[in-house]
Design a protein around this nucleic acid. Structure first.
Lengths: 340, 340
DNA sequence: CTGAAAGCGCTTACAG
DNA sequence: CTGAAAGCGCTTACAG
């Protein structure tokens, strides 16, 4: 049988209330009994049962990490990194952590409120959600503190965490321009995704800033999908042969673009330069190595957890938190080819 | 405030016991009240609180996934896949799921029993453990049902899940021999790891079966580490120039070996053929693409959960469960170079 | 088929 | 500084 607070209390010759108090860090306990109880508890391998604790306490905090479309994420470790960051924060702060993987279909059968009810959630970090997902609407209607990763919502109980996608994209495209590129295409993600809009804005900003004309058809959408990106990139490069560089809103799409380029018999970066986004591990192993905008997903997860916790404690929290990003220069960008 | 069983009972005009019974699938309830309660519960977004349920019920099953050295796993998605498999099983069977990331250091401060106590664990799937980890010893001493991934323990409460590493390695080396290789080196992982021993046995078996002499110094240990593998592979190839192929006990080490080969000015597979192990996503993006033994970590996670559940229910479970593996042929293996 | 009541392992005012 | 007791949201024999 499991060891309970009763066992420890009996062993220490005190009431269960006293044992409970030492485990909750109350200060009005004599050092002597406190130490004795701690020692006995350690010997008996006792740790308060989390379920009982969360039931009995009105203040127990439980933060959920809700990962949408978790299964689809095999090629990058971003979901894992977010998990790692959220987990690290909850562990450091002794917050209960629960994990929930959902999908469009599952969102239909178990509502966000049902889930929160079931697990007594006090706050959630949500990743991978899209604006047309049922949970997005539910979160907007609920009062529950939520940190939304890579997604914006105008509500005081919600905090958005991401890198500054506009700025990061501007920098990436700026870098291409610095290398002499004047005709830069963009392979963007799903049109509706918040990050797509921001990354496109960044692209446009960079062109404007450098007085380069903005060609509408230079921007194509490949749904964050490698396979689609192959076709989109091929079509774009064939129809716009003056292009010398491609800015891609994800590394997976950049990899697709790279495939398209080599299938066309062109080389990177001599003919076409490519910059990706996310800086997934793969980049370093590609030939050529892919330059990319890096975002620290673990930090994003950590900060997301930190900010829901602020929201839970009703401390002032920013509505939009930006995490620093980077531009990792590798081999996929070179000077623009002459005559272009 | 959250909606509780009381709220639903009041709304439906029944006792909480009745509501509880319909949510626990009792059959001796009139269809009429059952349907009414379900309808009301759905409308109110009610789902039984898991903490209260696990406290009150003696039969509530909670399976933990314990991931050791989770942080170190950035380059492959194996941990994520195991998580995905375990999660899928627990969800399908309505089992409570809890996640716990540990490390050598954390194992020292929170014992396995304390953790199980805290989360009311009825069974655990454990991955990434080493024989000299404190938890390994604790698990051996405990009566708790545990599924150990890639690790063996001779105890009726423990079940081991992995691919048949001996057989898989034999097949991989056999394949190299089929391609004409007679001098095959092996870059193995940590000497103490169970999988290392099995994979080496498989290597030896293949040589024996084909009447090839076994040279002790053909086998080197690189700790499952890419960087170390670079050096080990270089040293091995320099000292044994007759080698035409390398069998590596992990893809990360194979990638290290590939680096060593190209740094030496040799090419793959013309000069040296390489086979890896694990079949991580990276393989498909390398140049040349890496051939490898594939293991379905998601399936392993799923089967691990299934088998702890059997153990929990005291159903007969095998002590050692093998999951099917594959040999994925890509570009890193060619015919042995002539004159060798 | 359904309800009243004890109990799961805790926390926390309330007394002293 | 410490204990007795109510209560958190459930489940489950026990009655009827």
């Amino acid at each position: 049988m499991r060891v309970t607070i009763k066992d420890v209390a009996k062993e220490a010759g005190v009431s269960i209330a006293t044992v409970s108090r030492v485990f909750n860090g109350y200060t009005d306990i004599s050092e002597a009994t406190k130490n004795r109880i701690m020692k006995i508890a350690k010997e008996m391998d006792y740790l308060p049962n989390a379920a009982a604790r969360s039931l009995a306490s009105k203040t127990q905090v439980t933060i959920a990490l809700i990962l949408n479309d978790f299964e689809m994420n095999r090629k990058n470790t971003m979901a894992m990194e977010v998990l790692s960051g959220v987990y690290a924060y909850t562990e450091e702060h002794q917050i209960e952590f629960v994990f929930f993987a959902t999908s469009r279909i599952k969102q239909g059968s178990k509502s966000f409120r049902e889930f929160c009810n079931e697990k007594a959630i006090t706050g959630a970090v949500v990743q991978g959600l899209k604006v047309n997902d049922p949970y997005y609407k539910e979160i907007l209607e609920s009062q529950l503190p939520v940190a939304l990763i890579d997604m914006w919502a105008d509500k005081e109980s919600i905090c958005s965490i991401s890198i500054d996608n506009v700025k990061a994209s501007t920098e990436a495209v700026d870098y291409l321009i610095t290398q002499g590129h004047r005709h830069i295409g963009m392979i963007n993600g799903r049109r509706e995704a918040a990050v797509s809009i921001d990354r496109e804005t960044g692209y446009v900003n960079a062109l404007k800033k450098n007085n380069l004309p903005l060609m509408e058809y230079y921007v194509q959408y490949a749904n964050f999908n490698e396979k689609i990106a192959v076709e989109i990139a091929r079509d774009l490069l064939l129809s716009q042969p003056q292009l010398t560089a491609l800015f891609c809103a994800s590394d997976l799409m950049a990899i697709g673009a790279m495939k398209a380029v080599s299938e066309m018999g062109l080389s990177i970066p001599e003919d076409i330069s490519i910059v990706g986004f996310d800086d997934i591990i793969l980049n370093d192993y590609l030939t050529p190595k892919l330059s990319s905008v890096s975002q620290n997903m673990e930090k994003i997860g950590y900060e997301a957890a930190k900010n829901v916790y602020k929201l839970i404690k009703k401390e002032p929290a920013e509505r939009q938190v930006y995490i620093e990003h980077g531009l990792i220069i590798r081999e996929s960008v070179g000077p623009a080819r002459v005559g272009s």
